[in-house]
């Protein structure tokens, strides 16, 4: 069982996001593994384990040659990684990124499954899993909260508004997993040491047969026309509970005529 996992490397979400003068996300500080993708990495490791053999290969796309997020996922137990990196990727939209990921999947070859998160923490466009699947002509099983593989088929519980649906497809397929689908392991010390020597295949879009105008700002076919701060909501009254604050709440509900 060979499983590929998309891992995005992002600025630490704890620090407030900012846009550059070119309207791309600022990525100057060290990038880290998007926590959303740690679920895919863990899921892949468990599925390969259950299948009794195979490899977990990571795919990451980044304008700079960042690997620290990849090293975290390698330390969790992935075998190797493909990093597609080039300044021309700056400003890539979801479709351009999906094109790069699809080409990287073909470069690795021989995969049974591609796992992604449902949306990235910094960009959250949430369309890349379906786009990559379409480019590869693979089925896409999205919003999985449970994944099982048997007899050349993948079956998921797909989150819905009402509960969940059971969805099944033959392999190879793309599956996007929701947060919490499995409990990601912490990299062990041994894992961290081993990760330093695991192979990272660093390539450029051109090596994958993608022209410069298919990626980055050129490929995005959109332009940002305005960026402004959202209007702030004003805070109202704030009271300290002295045992009677519930009365103020009741009075407020009465004023709104909801009780």
């Amino acid at each position: 069982m060979n499983i590929l996992v998309c891992v995005k490397q992002i600025p630490d979400p704890a620090t407030p996001g900012e846009l550059t003068a070119e309207h791309t996300l600022k990525r100057e500080a060290k990038l880290i593994l998007d926590e959303s993708d740690s679920f895919g990495v863990e899921m892949a490791l468990q599925l390969v384990d259950k299948a009794g053999g195979g490899d977990v290969t990571l795919i990451s796309v980044a304008p700079n040659g960042e690997v620290s997020g990849l090293r975290t996922a390698l330390a969790m137990g992935a075998a190797k990684a493909v990093l597609v990196s080039d300044p021309s990727l700056s400003g890539s939209d979801s479709l351009s990124t999906a094109k790069v990921i699809a080409k990287a999947v073909e470069r690795v070859g021989d995969a049974d499954l591609l796992l992604t998160a449902t949306e990235s923490t910094d960009g959250y466009t949430g369309t890349i899993p379906a786009q990559v699947a379409e480019l590869l002509d693979w089925p896409s099983l999205t919003f999985a909260k449970q994944v099982t593989i048997a007899d050349g088929k993948v079956t998921i519980q797909r989150q819905t508004e009402a509960g969940y649906d059971v969805v099944e497809a033959s392999l190879p397929a793309v599956v996007s997993v929701t947060a919490g689908v499995v409990e990601p392991r912490y990299p062990s010390f041994k894992g961290i040491m081993a990760a330093k020597n695991k192979p990272v295949d660093a390539v450029k879009p051109a090596d994958l047969g993608l022209a410069d105008d298919q990626v980055g700002w050129a490929g995005a076919r959109q332009k940002i026309t305005s960026v402004e701060q959202a209007p702030e909501r004003q805070a109202g009254e704030k009271i300290e509970d002295d045992g009677t604050a519930f009365e103020a709440v009741v009075a407020y509900l009465e004023k709104l005529k909801v009780v």
Binding site: D93, S94, L95, S96, A98, Y124, T125, G126, T127, I128, P129, A130, Q131, V132, A133, E134, L135, S140, T142, F143, R158, Q159, T160, E161, A220, R221, Q222
Partner: peptide, 24 residues
């Protein structure tokens, strides 16, 4: 609409007809 099925539809269509998609 940015729903489960809406996202499947717009993602696959975007790749099928090679058009970018703006989300959220």
């Amino acid at each position: 609409a940015q729903t489960y099925d809406g996202r499947d539809a717009v993602g696959r269509l975007s790749a099928r007809i090679d058009r970018p998609v703006l989300t959220n």
